[in-house]
């Protein structure tokens, strides 16, 4: 049973990791705290459901979740951060909470507050290795999540855009002087951040069947915990943080009581902030 629980934990953790990476991109790199980040997870889940209901195949749903959540993230940047770029970091942060309330209620109006479910994918494929069973969906999730993690890692380290993002995060003024458009870099970063959360949302719905418009808050908080554990601004740290939280949560439920789960996670969060706020893997350019 233990090996099965490890696989369960890694699958869950890989979706947390996607949320955490998006979080850490915006916070660690742009120094902006988007408290509606969890809602992007929710928006992605519902976008995936809406597209799948139209009869589209799985990859189309994934792309739609990616795009819509990315665009909503850009909308958050344009309405909560950009107009308040000269205020302290507190005002936009609170504005994102209000934006989150709006998103929750809009989705609730259009999809209902009862749980929505991803249409049956019709796949009953299962990989059986000894006592372990891994379903096709789990494989899709793991492959997509890890594919995206590696992709984003390469994107940040090897591409012009990645260089621009890192330069902007180190010194926005110098970067601008060198011809990098800070506003454009910010918007694209938000897009990628939201898109990853959206994919995570869709993947989660796919395997765990149902979502409600109110799941975003917890997903956002868990993403934040994973981000802090991994070290603010460190993408690889966020991945490891996400996987760690997934494992902790699964093991807690398997061998302890689910009632204590959030207490355990938030206690770890609190302890990290007090004892090791820089996280397990401090970013080079953390502020």
């Amino acid at each position: 049973m233990f090996e099965q629980q490890v696989i369960n934990g890694i699958t869950l953790g890989s979706t947390y990791a996607l949320v955490a990476i998006g979080y850490t991109l915006v916070l660690g790199v742009l120094n902006k705290l988007n408290l509606a980040h969890g809602e992007l997870f929710m928006v992605g889940a519902f976008t995936g459901i809406a597209v799948a209901r139209l009869g589209a195949p799985l990859p189309v749903s994934l792309v739609a979740a990616f795009a819509v959540s990315g665009l909503v993230a850009v909308a958050i940047e344009r309405s909560c951060f950009y107009p308040l770029r000269n205020a302290s970091f507190l005002s936009p942060m609170l504005s994102t909470i209000a934006f989150g309330i709006l998103l929750q209620n809009l989705v609730s109006q259009f999809f209902g507050s009862d749980p929505s479910r991803f249409p049956d994918t019709g796949s009953s494929f299962q990989l059986t290795l000894g006592t372990l069973t891994v379903s096709a969906i789990h494989i899709v999730i793991l492959a997509t999540a890890f594919g995206l993690m590696i992709g984003i890692d390469l994107l940040i380290r090897k591409t012009r855009w990645g260089i621009a993002v890192r330069a902007t995060s180190d010194d926005a003024e110098t970067a601008a002087q060198q011809g990098m458009h800070p506003s454009r870099v910010t918007m694209t970063t938000f897009f990628v951040s939201g898109a990853l959360a959206g994919v995570a949302g869709m993947l989660t719905t796919l395997v765990y069947s149902q979502v409600t418009p109110h799941i975003g808050i917890r997903q956002g908080l868990i993403g934040m915990v994973a981000m802090v554990i991994g070290g603010l601004g460190n993408l690889r740290g966020a991945m490891i943080g996400g996987l760690a939280i997934g494992l902790v949560e699964t093991m807690n439920d398997a061998y302890f009581s689910a009632g204590y789960r959030d207490l355990v996670i938030f206690a770890i969060f609190f302890a990290f902030l007090i004892v090791k706020p820089e996280g397990l893997f401090p970013a080079h350019h953390s502020r």
């Binding site: 869950l12 398997a254 009632g259 959030d262």
Partner: peptide, 19 residues
């Protein structure tokens, strides 16, 4: 006296079902 437990609104139940 110790049922398998979860929390209302959980996204996943793999650990519980494995148990």
């Amino acid at each position: 006296k110790d049922p398998v437990t979860f929390q209302n609104g959980d996204a996943q139940f793999t650990a519980q079902v494995t148990r």
